[in-house]
Simulated scan of single mutants.
Amino acid sequence: MSNAEKKNTQSYLERLKQQALSQENYGGAIKYDQANMQLYDCPECAAPRAPGDGLTVCAYCGFKFMTVKLSDGIHIKKEN
């Protein structure tokens, strides 16, 4: 390879590197957030419960986090 070809190749690589460094992300600037988990503890036994699980009863002690009562609605009718 001659010096001219080496110089051309190096300049091409340098231009690619420069272009990669100067281009912006498609979604804009990257936001860095602290990782976290939202856990709620059972008031009876202090066992953790994730809010996204949809649990209504503690798996360890049986404490009821919420009680659901159905009432007459448009599509759901309570049964007597």
Rank of each mutant, 00 (worst) to 15 (best):
S2G: 10
N3S: 04
A4Y: 06
A4W: 03
E5W: 02
K7W: 08
Y12W: 12
L13F: 08
E14N: 13
R15T: 00
R15S: 01
L16P: 01
L16D: 02
K17S: 14
Q19S: 04
A20D: 11
S22V: 02
Q23V: 07
E24R: 09
E24F: 11
N25V: 04
Y26K: 10
G28I: 01
K31M: 14
K31P: 04
Y32D: 14
Y32M: 05
D33T: 15
Q34T: 15
Q34A: 15
A35C: 11
N36A: 13
N36F: 09
N36C: 03
M37N: 04
M37I: 09
Q38W: 12
L39S: 01
D41C: 15
D41S: 15
D41W: 13
P43W: 01
E44G: 02
E44F: 07
C45R: 14
A46C: 15
A47L: 09
R49C: 03
G52E: 09
D53G: 13
G54A: 01
G54V: 01
V57W: 00
Y60H: 07
F63D: 05
F65W: 03
T67K: 06
V68F: 03
D72H: 12
I74N: 08
H75R: 07
H75N: 11
I76M: 10
K77Y: 12
K77C: 05
N80M: 05
N80I: 04
